[in-house]
Lab assay of single mutants.
Amino acid sequence: KKYKIKVYVKDKKTKKWKKIKEIEVDTKEEALEAIKKLPPNYEVKIVP
């Protein structure tokens, strides 16, 4: 079972969220580790 991490950042001009990358991992633990490495201003969604 794979997890997709969708990473969004808020556009300063439009104030809208835009997706900047998608990370695919195998476990939820890996997903949480990957999220920890991202800057705090990123919004993250984990999709099972």
Rank of each mutant, 00 (worst) to 15 (best):
K1S: 12
K1Y: 11
K1Q: 14
K2N: 08
K2A: 11
K2T: 07
Y3D: 00
Y3N: 01
K4W: 08
K4Y: 08
K4L: 15
I5K: 00
I5W: 03
I5R: 00
I5A: 01
I5G: 00
K6L: 15
K6C: 05
K6W: 13
K6P: 01
V7I: 12
V7P: 00
V7E: 00
Y8P: 00
Y8M: 02
V9T: 07
V9C: 05
K10N: 04
D11G: 04
D11P: 02
K12R: 08
K12V: 11
K12H: 13
K12W: 10
K12D: 10
K13L: 13
K13D: 08
K13E: 10
K13T: 07
T14Y: 04
T14N: 09
T14L: 05
K15I: 01
K15R: 12
K16M: 08
K16E: 06
K16I: 05
W17V: 03
W17P: 02
W17G: 01
W17R: 04
K18M: 09
K19I: 10
K19F: 14
K19W: 07
I20M: 05
I20F: 06
I20Y: 06
K21Y: 15
K21G: 15
K21W: 13
E22T: 09
E22H: 03
I23C: 09
I23H: 02
I23Q: 03
I23W: 15
I23S: 02
E24M: 13
E24A: 07
E24P: 05
V25I: 07
V25Y: 11
D26S: 14
D26L: 09
D26N: 12
T27H: 03
K28D: 04
E29R: 10
E29W: 11
E29G: 05
E30C: 04
E30P: 00
E30I: 05
E30Y: 03
E30S: 05
A31E: 01
A31K: 01
L32F: 12
L32K: 07
L32I: 11
E33Y: 03
E33G: 05
E33V: 09
E33D: 12
E33I: 10
A34N: 04
A34D: 01
A34T: 13
A34M: 15
I35R: 04
I35M: 08
I35E: 01
I35N: 01
K36V: 05
K36Y: 04
K36D: 07
K36I: 07
K37D: 10
K37L: 11
K37A: 14
K37I: 08
L38M: 11
L38V: 06
L38D: 00
L38W: 11
L38Q: 03
P39A: 09
P39H: 07
P40F: 08
N41E: 14
N41P: 06
N41S: 14
Y42N: 05
Y42V: 13
Y42Q: 06
Y42I: 07
E43L: 15
E43Q: 14
E43Y: 15
E43M: 15
E43F: 15
E43T: 15
V44W: 14
V44D: 01
V44Q: 02
V44M: 05
K45G: 03
K45V: 15
K45Y: 13
K45P: 01
K45E: 08
K45D: 06
I46W: 08
I46E: 01
V47T: 11
V47L: 09
V47D: 05
V47Q: 08
P48V: 15
P48I: 15
